[in-house]
Amino acid sequence: DKATNPSNRQEDWEYIIGFCDQINKELEGPQIAVRLLAHKIQSPQEWEAVQALTVLEACMKNCGRRFHNEVGKFRFLNELIKVVSPKYLGDRVSEKVKTKVIELLYSWTVALPEESKIKDAYYMLKRQGIVMF
């Protein structure tokens, strides 16, 4: 909540790194974290969603394979797909948030080729015309 608080004036890296540390400490950290992050990323408040995406990116860089495995499941990827798809939340979500989600997905297809479901999700969005370029 503190790492994504809409009243933060700017991204609060103390809390963001604290969230990453907590994931690394706990056995079920990645599973719990992705559920919390999916909820924040779908926030109707743009700034809360943007901060949640920054936290997600930080976790991908700092929480290792256990976290990558969890993000690389359709269970989580589907929550990101809902954000960009007009069939779900896409019409109500800002372009900024949608662009960031697509940029993250693309960056992981390059950085984590072993997480094949990320590629499946990204190329499905491309085929459906939701990712244009």
Binding site: K73, F74, N78, I81, S85, Y88, M124
Partner: peptide
Amino acid sequence: TVSFHDDSDEDLLNV
């Protein structure tokens, strides 16, 4: 304590 490792997943959404 023994932790249950959840390896389950769902299907990819269709948009």
